[in-house]
Design a protein around this nucleic acid. Structure first.
Lengths: 332, 332
DNA sequence: GTGAAAGCGCTAACAT
DNA sequence: ATGTTAGCGCTTTCAC
């Protein structure tokens, strides 16, 4: 490692002078400046940004971290855009990192080691304990996928209950009463609340809830396929299926079609999220849209408000929209 | 900022003891350990990871940075997965950052300030100069979207020329000779080479190149729409269009259809990249697939090989595949 | 204009 | 088992 000391030595100046020269601080003569720059080039010097930050203030990294369970997920594109726009607006850097690896992940470091000035978290594999431990007055953490009780933790969520309710109600209005629910992971807050919405809509319409039609799909495409297979193997089949997210719905759609069921003629399908693919499958997927860009942008605003000590409300709820396409139809 | 000193003071121990206790180093008695942990909790202590890193070794951050021009692009999902998998395998953290903002971006800091042990760059707005300046024997930089002449810069690319050639040749074999080219930004290396492939295929088949059918589309969806409109307004229209990436092709497809042209009956379309959406549009897009996952994985392997001082070849070329779908057809 | 030196928060060798 | 202290690489007073 070549350090500023090496550069100073080679240029025959003091480290302070080298530092001034390298940072373009108008304190050194032109000739020494050139000497220093030359020496730096010859040695292939690269400053250690962390050391620099450490000295400069100790605090304030001018960075906010976005923690996702899987950097490569299809859902995130718009959300990231929202975060990115607002972070840039404030002159902050945005670092995206994955929480794969749990307690030992990059994400954990950002959460617990002040490697950023704030975090936005959408990662089910980060435990509540970690979040509680990490957040503080001076270190805002905004969570997007759960509800947590803690003064310094802000929470932006979509109205999942209403979304679940609306999805179910839409199917009911189309004449369906045999409506299955394909759930995400049991420990997912989003899933729980969507499920509540489903139950409430059934109840409000005097439809009995049938356990046999509540199948787990784990929020993955494969899970959706599995769930569809389980449902289509049953003696009494539902006429409509509410998948708790689009990825499962897409898998399920494929599975039903492969088994020879026509969608929506034989079975209606509705999803949740409105991911990009939803509009491209055939039939186009009817679903509940989450305002993803807005979630990202709002979450980032919250971070900055907390950083600047403004009072903020601890929880924000965004509404969802029913997007009617072609995968669910009137039951005759 | 509460530091380890504060914790030590509150617990009535020396900083070293506090450090040992906090890091679970088996050197302190159980009771003092508890004292320290308690004090830390009471003060809401969070360690400064950067200071810790700085001390620990000065060098080696165990992090590799992935620099993208736009974190939210649709193209990146698979590529990121490739990078992520290999990085994790090596016990390294992956940080994704955007180069929006150019010289002042987060990306620039990672490139020039040793905030990572290596970088993978796919960002046209990072200049060649920056890359040359950043890379060194000890700091591997792998670029994915250009060719650079520099010992310490490795370069993984897709065989864009052959891809461009094959796309064009396919159209020719389908009987087309009036083939338009919708280009990306003029300064994009990928675009240039794809264009060369296009020209060579025309030439090899004794087809004259027509400037009027070479339209710029900037690699964006909007650009594709614009280009399609320009082409369809011309007196003599091409019978086939080669869009230099899928995003443009998708925009173009939409624009043609909106103008009342049937694809592929009235006009054939071929794209480049094979992004996810390509298989979902109607008609499904015929295109040239880039091995995106493999690019990410290979690039990351290169980074680690250079880190561990292995000899590596400076340039890698991956091949592309023609994916025949429904957007191009035999000309009668 | 330049240099000496303090110190950011932390870890680890060394002393006790 | 615990404390003292040097120093990671850098910036920034403060002298000269």
């Amino acid at each position: 490692m070549v350090t500023i000391k090496d550069v100073a030595r080679r240029a025959n100046v003091a480290v302070s002078t080298a530092s001034y020269a390298l940072n373009g601080i108008n304190k050194v003569s032109k000739s020494t400046k050139e000497k220093v720059i030359l020496a730096a080039q010859e040695l292939n010097y690269q400053k250690n940004g962390f050391a620099s930050d450490l000295k400069k203030s100790g605090t304030r990294t001018k960075t906010i971290a976005l923690i996702l369970s899987d950097l490569s997920g299809p859902f995130y594109s718009e959300l990231i855009r929202g975060v990115q726009d607002v972070a840039m607006e404030h002159g902050y850097d945005l670092l995206a990192c994955s929480s794969m690896g749990g307690e030992n992940s990059t994400a954990a470091k950002f959460l617990t080691e002040r490697r950023a000035d704030g975090c936005i978290v959408l990662a089910h594999n980060i435990t509540d304990e970690m979040l509680h431990g990490a957040s503080s007055e001076h270190y805002p953490v905004v969570v997007l996928d759960r509800k947590l009780d803690n003064k310094s933790l802000v929470h932006v969520e979509v109205d999942n209950k209403k979304g679940g309710y609306n999805a179910t109600e839409y199917l009911i209005k189309q004449g369906h009463s045999k409506i299955a629910y394909v759930s995400g992971p049991a420990d997912s807050y989003d899933n729980q609340v969507r499920f509540e919405g489903y139950r409430e809509a059934l109840e409000a319409n005097q439809i009995d809830y049938e356990t046999k039609w509540a199948v787990s799909g784990n929020f993955t495409r494969e899970g959706g396929i599995l769930a569809a297979n389980i449902l289509s193997a049953q003696e009494e089949r539902p006429t409509a299926v509410f998948f708790a997210n689009d990825e499962m719905a897409l898998g399920g759609l494929e599975a039903f079609q492969r088994k020879g069921f026509r969608v929506p003629e034989d079975i209606s399908i509705i999803g949740f999220d409105d991911i990009l693919e939803a509009q491209y499958v055939s039939p186009k997927l009817t679903t509940i849209r989450q305002p993803k860009y807005e979630m990202g942008a709002l979450a980032t605003h919250m971070v900055f408000q907390i950083i600047s000590q403004e009072e903020v409300s601890r929880t924000y709820k965004l509404h969802t929209d029913l997007i009617v396409r072609d995968s669910a139809k009137q039951l005759k």
